[in-house]
Write a protein that binds this DNA or RNA. Structure first.
Lengths: 256, 256
DNA sequence: CCTGATTCTGCATGATCATGCCGGATTTAT
DNA sequence: ATAAATCCGGCATGATCATGCAGAATCAGG
């Protein structure tokens, strides 16, 4: 068995099982444990695995989705500017959908107070923030609440979404890329976001620049389907999205 | 099983259940309790858990600055005591419904952290408070959000309620009286509360003493249908309700 | 085909790590 | 108050690791 074959096999094993045990691999492949260890060192140098005592683990794949609670704490100012800029897209006297996420929560907080709006959301935090604002009526799309994202997900949520026809939906972005479109960290999130996209007449995405040019495992919509992108810094990823037909808005450092 | 895998498993268990028991983990993973203790020590050093006698707990998340609205609604100490007393009625591993209202919000905040629960609610504020608690899964019943009560109301809400069968429902009381039963200030609220009552196997009411012996225009359920009443001061209205078959719990000044 | 260089592999050795067990202290429950 | 469960520190043991070295396989060029 060639060294590279062994490497490929170990990498495959890491992908499928998430971990490998050095001694077991040595026995299975009929080589010494030293050889396996050397293999693991080589793979680690290439970032394919992370060595631990006894074997190796598959590295954490995607940038791990942090719980919203923690995300909301960071980057307060930038999120606020983003929210204010995005809020200007919200048409008056229409049904606007706000997906869950820290950016959209900031967006909700930054909604202009002089505008009459009906806001639908699947995020309890957004509903709790807006429900007693004068001039704003809130429709909450229920379902099981996902602890990770703080959003309602599941079949009930998707079914309830089918009865709404928002003029504009702000979909929370886990990752946006011109090639991969809008993507999400979990299947359930992606299903809900896709249901929102299906229902909405137009789609807007508010995202911090670190989300741009990245992608997550689950596809929501292609980039062409995104009408507006609001972010805080112009970059290569913005241009690529603009080429795909997305109207890109950059929120200046001073929102006045 | 690799040490790191065990660590990851324990961390995951902490996230989902909120606590782990050393002896149970040792038996389940077929290692000695000493090893588990060492694991817990390592995880504690990384801030993943907080060790206690017999096992470990998920760390308290830093208290998030709550919207002023929610804080003011709490009315301080009395509501908290009431909430803690009422929370003791919540059966473990069962579906519990929490209606909207400031008392029930306090109840949600006072829920024991070591209990596994599924909580359904029609109040975005309660869902936002509970959704990322370890050991608690939250189902949000959606609908139009009533600005007055902060609760979801309307036909969609009633329809969604019909699919739940909570073992116990804490219905928010606008007014409770032995003769008039549980009553509400608006028709829509009353309809939703009645739908909750229909769905639930048992009904509990947590109410401050000023609600007792009073009534409001819209009838929800008769007094006989109320299983438990939790309040903070014994009085004539309590006795009348006890005569109607309600189990009355009085939360002492020191919940200890 | 031969030769020298390079790489891969296995083995030995001493160090490090993970685990289980034991005795005594501490906490919890009855 | 007493018994049981739990915790802590230390220790012994076996597994695992890093390193250096030597033989085998592979390869390039003559």
């Amino acid at each position: 068995m060639l060294t590279q074959e062994r490497h490929a096999l170990i990498a495959e094993r890491l992908r499928s099982a998430g971990s490998v045990v050095a001694s077991a691999l040595a026995a299975e492949l009929a080589v010494s444990e030293d050889t396996i260890r050397r293999d693991l060192r080589a793979l680690e140098a290439r970032g394919v695995c992370e060595r631990v005592h006894g074997g190796a683990l598959a590295p954490e794949m995607q940038p791990r989705p942090q719980p919203v609670r923690e995300r909301t704490a960071m980057a307060g100012d930038e999120k606020a500017r983003l929210g204010a800029a995005a809020a200007r897209l919200a048409p008056a006297d229409a049904l606007v959908f706000l997906d869950a996420g820290s950016t959209n929560l900031a967006l909700a907080a930054a909604l202009p107070r002089d505008r009459r709006l009906t806001v639908a959301t699947n995020a309890p935090a957004i509903a709790a923030l807006l429900y007693d604002r004068p001039g704003v009526s809130v429709i909450l799309v229920g379902g099981r609440v996902d602890p990770q994202s703080g959003a309602c997900v599941g079949a009930d949520t998707v079914a309830a979404l089918a009865r709404l026809r928002p003029a504009l939906a702000f979909i929370g972005a886990c990752a946006v890329d011109a090639g991969h479109g809008l993507t999400a960290f979990s299947l359930e999130e992606a299903q809900v976001k896709a249901a929102i996209a299906d229902a909405a007449a137009a789609i807007a995405v508010a995202a911090t620049p670190d989300k741009l040019g990245t992608f997550a495992p689950f596809r929501v919509v292609p980039a062409e389907r995104i009408g507006h992108l609001v972010t805080t810094r112009r970059g290569a990823a913005c241009d690529a999205l603009a080429d795909a037909g997305v109207a890109v808005h950059v929120a200046g450092p001073d929102p006045q």
